[in-house]
Design a protein around this nucleic acid. Structure first.
Lengths: 224, 224
DNA sequence: CTTGACACAGAACAGGCGTTCGGTTATGAT
DNA sequence: ATCATAACCGAACGCCTGTTCTGTGTCAAG
């Protein structure tokens, strides 16, 4: 029986990946084999090379053989100042939204994903636990969100006043995007469009918060 | 009198910058000095080094001395897969929008800028001639654009049917964002919100197209 | 004409770096 | 016990690469 820690990646691999990421962030370029060795307590360059090969085989990084510092992290690992956010599906009024499972982030069999510059992110949402949904239909126009827009969400069951949230109204069978405010006897769900009236929800839990909206992106595609 | 082409950067510098960018895009890492020399018809490594120093002095790239291939483009040059777009000002109904001058791209005394992943860009808008404006006020709600949103524009005086454009209506003294359609005797400016009616413009040039909208970004900032 | 900057060439140097190879130790399977 | 394999070490090799130094030609200012 193969109980040996050989399958997948071990603690040593993680440490190396972490160091590469940190080094890259600080120096703007990848570390050399020897630098990895020093900071990960590996005394021989051949061993580092050994691990690097394994990490490459498992898809965690790419290597440019023979080229100095020729390695880069792949997948949804933040590369440079970028963040890869998986697009889990669509959001529309008539259906509940897909919520991320643990597997969605681990596997970068990236069906679909969007890249966001971290500089666009609000206060350190650096977590890789963000996910994205594509808006289908015109049902979100009262949230100033159009068909085809992409909304970036952070999974959350709670919200503070003023957050825009994606909620599932179970009694209406409807998904919607609204600004969230707590009132004395319930919640007020305020559309982004100021000309439209809010929805008042009683304290009973007819409302399920699915996530906070972090960002909305509208691409004006058009075969140019 | 210094008529010598010494001021700013010359043709050779441009070629080098272009090569670095192309090489980076293809190999995912910067070129070596010798590789730059080969592809830019410079026979001596010292000359390449000579130009690289100048480019660094002028802020076009950063160098990590002593480190192999230790250079990277700075400013609004696409870094990796990122594009830095300058935010030139605000856009609001009552005022004309700022349009980019030549200097706006050359100098990256970047007051303000946003970074966009090229993967989010429509068909090869890779040009560095994009610019961004921050929306002020609620006057663009009929274009589904909110106060605080950021619109990414491509400078243009023309538009095709279906493009969303930023236009200046000189007889109304108003800037607005609308979908553009050419009609038999003028133009139809269609709001993004389908419940709102279009503006019809006669063939006389009361309308100045300032740019095509490429993208809209809404950040849900909130001190988390 | 002289001077000095600028643009450029070529060669040599030295250190950085990936690769490779022979060898050692521990672990699990048979 | 034996044996294959994974994990690891250390040193040597050799190319790659940035740096530096000497030298050449051009062009404009004095």
């Amino acid at each position: 029986m193969m109980v040996r820690k050989s399958k997948g990646i071990g603690e040593r691999h993680q440490k190396i990946l972490g160091f590469i990421e940190a080094y890259q962030r600080e120096h703007k370029h990848p570390p050399s084999i020897r630098e990895i060795g020093e900071h990960c307590d590996i005394s021989s360059t051949s061993v580092v090379n050994y691990y690097l090969d394994q990490l490459e085989k498992n898809g965690y990084l790419e290597r440019d053989r023979k080229i100095s510092r020729g390695m880069r992290l792949t997948g949804n690992t933040p590369l440079g100042d970028m963040l890869r956010v998986p697009v889990l599906g669509v959001i529309q009024a008539g259906e509940p939204i897909p919520v991320p499972s643990n597997a969605d982030f681990g596997s970068f069999t990236s069906e679909d994903s969007v890249e966001i510059a971290t500089s666009l992110m609000p206060a350190k949402e650096k977590g890789r636990e963000l996910f994205a949904l594509k808006v289908q239909g015109d049902s979100m126009i009262d949230a100033m969100v159009n068909d085809g827009d992409i909304v970036i969400l952070k999974p959350s069951q709670e919200a503070r006043n003023g957050d825009m949230v994606a909620v599932w109204l179970s009694d209406r069978n409807e998904t919607t995007l609204k600004y969230f405010y707590k009132e004395k006897d319930g919640y007020r769900l305020q559309p982004a469009n100021p000309t439209m009236k809010p929805i008042m929800v009683k304290k009973n839990e007819q409302v399920e918060i699915k996530g906070k909206v972090v960002m909305v992106i509208r691409k004006m595609d058009r075969l140019n």
